[in-house]
Amino acid sequence: MIMEDNDDYFSSFDESWILALNDDEDDGVSGETLSASDTDKSDIDFSDFEENVDGDIVSDSNTDEAIDPMKAAMRSKMWTYNPRDDIEFEKGMLFTNVDAFRSALKDYVIQKGFVLVRRKNERTRCTAKCGIEGCQWRIHASLVGDTTTFMIKSYHAKHTCVMSKKNIEATSDWIAKKLVSVLKDYPEMTSKGIVAEMLKFGVNPIKMQVYRARKKAFEEIESSHGASYAKLPKYAELVRNHSPGSICKIHYDLPNLIMKEPRFLRIFISFKAQKDGFQAGCRPFIGFDGCHLKGPFGGVLLTAVALDGNNSLFPLAFAVAESENKDT
Rank of each mutant, 00 (worst) to 15 (best):
I2P: 11
I2D: 13
D7Y: 14
F10A: 04
S11W: 09
S12L: 10
S12H: 05
D14F: 06
W17N: 05
I18T: 13
L21I: 05
N22T: 10
D23P: 04
E32P: 03
E32W: 07
L34C: 13
A36G: 06
D40G: 08
D40C: 10
I44K: 15
I44T: 12
F49Y: 10
E50L: 12
E51N: 12
V53L: 11
D54W: 03
D56W: 04
V58D: 06
S59Q: 08
I67P: 07
M70F: 10
M70T: 08
M70Y: 10
K71E: 02
A73Q: 08
R75N: 09
R75Y: 02
S76T: 14
K77F: 06
M78I: 06
T80P: 05
Y81A: 07
R84C: 09
D85W: 07
I87S: 01
E88D: 11
G92P: 01
M93T: 11
F95N: 03
V98W: 10
V98N: 01
I110A: 01
V115R: 05
N121P: 09
N121R: 03
E122K: 05
R125D: 09
C126N: 02
C126H: 01
C130K: 01
G131N: 06
G131M: 00
G131C: 07
C135Q: 01
Q136D: 13
W137D: 07
S142A: 12
L143D: 02
V144W: 05
T147P: 02
T148W: 12
M151E: 00
I152N: 08
I152H: 00
K153Q: 15
A157M: 02
H159T: 01
C161A: 01
V162I: 10
M163N: 09
K165H: 07
K165G: 00
K166N: 08
N167A: 06
T171V: 04
W174I: 04
S181H: 09
V182D: 07
Y186A: 14
Y186K: 11
E188V: 01
T190Q: 08
M198A: 04
L199V: 06
K200M: 02
F201V: 03
G202N: 07
N204V: 00
P205E: 00
P205N: 02
Q209H: 01
K215T: 07
K216Y: 02
A217M: 04
S228H: 15
S228A: 15
Y229M: 14
Y229P: 09
A230P: 09
A230H: 15
P233D: 03
L238A: 15
V239Y: 11
H242L: 13
D253W: 12
M259T: 15
F264V: 00
F264Y: 07
R266T: 06
I269L: 04
S270F: 03
S270C: 15
K275G: 09
F278C: 05
G281V: 04
G281F: 02
C282N: 02
R283G: 05
R283P: 03
R283M: 08
P284N: 13
F285A: 15
G287W: 05
G287M: 04
C291K: 06
V305T: 08
V305W: 09
A306E: 05
F314Q: 03
A317M: 00
A321S: 13
D327T: 11
